[in-house]
Write a protein that binds this DNA or RNA. Structure first.
Lengths: 208, 208
DNA sequence: GCATGTTACGAGTTATCACTCGGTTATGGT
DNA sequence: ACCATAACCGAGTGATAACTCGTAACATGC
């Protein structure tokens, strides 16, 4: 592990709001945190500043979040949820070819919709012990891909254990796009990367 | 951009040492910073602690580094240089197949040699405005791959502009492995990822 | 062995941080 | 209208951060 950290509960929200105004407070805190992340970076986005910009007091902030890290963990969680929703809103692919195209397109659309935020989430915000298994992408999406490949194994080129292949291709696409977000964000606006990625994954998964 | 930051010179070393003992001091500081990064994480690795553990005074530390960020920028720079040296120590590949294998093997060897450090560098340490173009990987290695593909274009499957293809495959390999370092480091110890990655890249670059 | 630059020192300054707590205000059920 | 409780407040506390600067030790050329 990269660093010894406080136990896990410290990265989750403290209490569940029951009234409407507290939901608004939480939303204000998360928006404020996001804006500060984009303007001054994670390091300098202190809990005091987050509360100020959100128009709430630090006291209120600590009612809901045990600390700064939990706030950004929640920002990440909600973004990942949004990705999952985008994915599930798509029509069910009818072939592996369609799966690949959909997979790449939806993730590209997702990062393009707010490049700066995703760059910051990858770059600036430490990935705490949130655990992959907690994020919808890993908990729901990867198993879904695995299942899809299993039911379409007729068109699949044999390239090893299907579960591992599903895991692998899911990560290759995500990792590559994340990499471009960080190192060459302008290349993500045209179709080049999309075409290359689709070509890469199709040739890997399908017989020529 | 992800965050407004101080101008670039703040991420480089302050002055060039002329005597031998100052080189040792710098080395001590960098080692100490690395060890603290692994034990307590980037956030809590303060300049004071780094100096203490290095056995030098804060004053000395600030003689050479304008701040904490510059120290870790230098750690990253040296690691990247080490990767480049590893790469260049390899025998010149005689075919694209050999290039792919060598490329994947050397980067895997590199991250495996100190998994925890690389996880921390990816995860914990913000990637300041060091700039890709400053790191040997981007400045030297990617152009080298480009050139190699050009001279071996006979075996290359046409998949678009060669320069862009070279750039793309360089990043796919690195991004995928980095991703496993972060999310599934234990899978890097066996040959599975290596084989999948080689298969992926070979099928993309070569005719079947 | 002296002179001059180079390296090392570390207590002190200033700023900011995360987080608390005693108390006030708003809300919704009855 | 009343009250239990949910939500909110924000000055204050103690800790720790980054970084400075006057001083002392050392190295090197002469």
């Amino acid at each position: 592990m990269t660093a010894q950290r406080k136990p896990n509960p410290l990265y989750t929200m403290r209490k569940v709001p029951s009234q409407a105004r507290s939901k608004a407070t939480i939303q204000a805190i998360l928006s404020s945190a996001t804006r500060l992340l984009l303007s001054i970076g994670y390091d300098k986005a202190s809990t005091n500043k987050i509360a100020d910009l959100a128009g709430v007091s630090v006291g209120s902030l600590y009612e809901y979040f045990p600390g700064k890290e939990a706030i950004f963990a929640e920002v990440r969680r909600r973004e990942d949820q949004r990705l999952f929703n985008l994915t599930m809103a798509r029509p069910e692919p009818r072939s592996i070819k369609e799966l690949v195209r959909s997979h790449v397109a939806v993730y590209l659309e997702f990062v393009r919709s707010n490049l700066a935020l995703h760059a910051a989430l990858i770059n600036d915000v430490p990935q705490f012990a949130v655990g992959q298994q907690e994020l919808p992408f890993y908990r729901e999406y990867v198993p879904w891909v695995t299942n899809f490949l299993h039911t379409h194994k007729a068109e699949l080129r044999p390239a090893g254990d299907i579960t591992q292949v599903a895991n692998f291709v899911s990560h290759v696409a995500r990792a590559t796009i994340d990499n471009y977000v960080l190192h060459a964000p302008d290349q993500l606006t045209d179709r080049l990367i999309e075409d290359l990625l689709i070509d890469l994954l199709e040739r890997f998964l399908l017989e020529p």
